[in-house]
Design a protein around this nucleic acid. Structure first.
Lengths: 123, 123
DNA sequence: GTCTTGCTTTGATTACTGTCAAATTAGATG
DNA sequence: CATCTAATTTGACAGTAATCAAAGCAAGAC
């Protein structure tokens, strides 16, 4: 099985990943790991809150207030995002600060983009 | 709770959804429905295969061959994508053809995009 | 040292998801 | 009508995931 695997030598059709040439099973596997991580209302907002926060980073204590969830649950979501590579954490004294990994987010956007030939940038 | 809800009158900071101003809980809910739908290796490849296929559409029988999955499972994934609004189906005779809804995909890409002020286009 | 605060981990529960086999519907053809 | 192919629906099962309460860990204050 596994027909449409590697496709042509890159760039036969239009240029965009999703509309250019089909994703291989391997690529789809990688990307779906990232998508699964961010495909949750709480996690999507966490990434958004972190990215928008001044300095590009946010302390956990600044994030929990925005949700109806308990601290352990927020911590769980942050861990999922971190293990997927979408965010990074750093402890400074009592507080733990999170920041987004822009390159990984850019890769996601590039894969979903309808006509923008931008994927090669973040591979 | 639910602090960071509606934010400013659109477009205070940079421009991008995720890095400009934080997503509201409502927006995050909508977007995460789309992300959950596409956050699966099989569904991601299905969208890719459909989008790349000539004419922008593909028959189910042309899709099932690319997977190690049974026809009911493929049909299930297509249903999930369809109910999320990412693809549309049309029956023509014996065959059912699927095509992607580019606007919805564009919205996703815009939300994840790091610096591209493109979200307003597909709202 | 003891406390207090910030955050994470553990354990349990509940709910959802991906998958298949079997049955079903839809259309074309004989 | 019967039959064949294409696709979907149903029902069941195994695996995964979201959530919380309680316990644990880390760093600073006392």
């Amino acid at each position: 099985m596994r027909e449409v695997s590697v496709a042509g030598p890159a760039g036969e059709c239009c240029g965009s990943p999703l509309t250019g040439e089909p994703l291989s099973a391997a690529e789809a596997g990688e990307i779906s790991v990232l998508l699964k991580a961010i495909a949750d209302p709480a996690r999507l907002r966490l990434v958004s809150l972190i990215a928008c926060h001044e300095g590009g980073e946010a302390c956990v204590c600044e994030l929990t207030g925005a949700f109806d969830l308990t601290a352990p649950t927020i911590s769980h979501h942050l861990r999922v995002l971190r293990e997927a590579g979408l965010i990074s954490s750093e402890r400074r004294g009592t507080w733990v600060y999170y920041r987004t990994n822009q390159g990984v987010l850019a890769r996601l956007a590039a894969v979903l983009g309808p006509g923008v030939p931008a994927m090669a940038a973040s591979r």
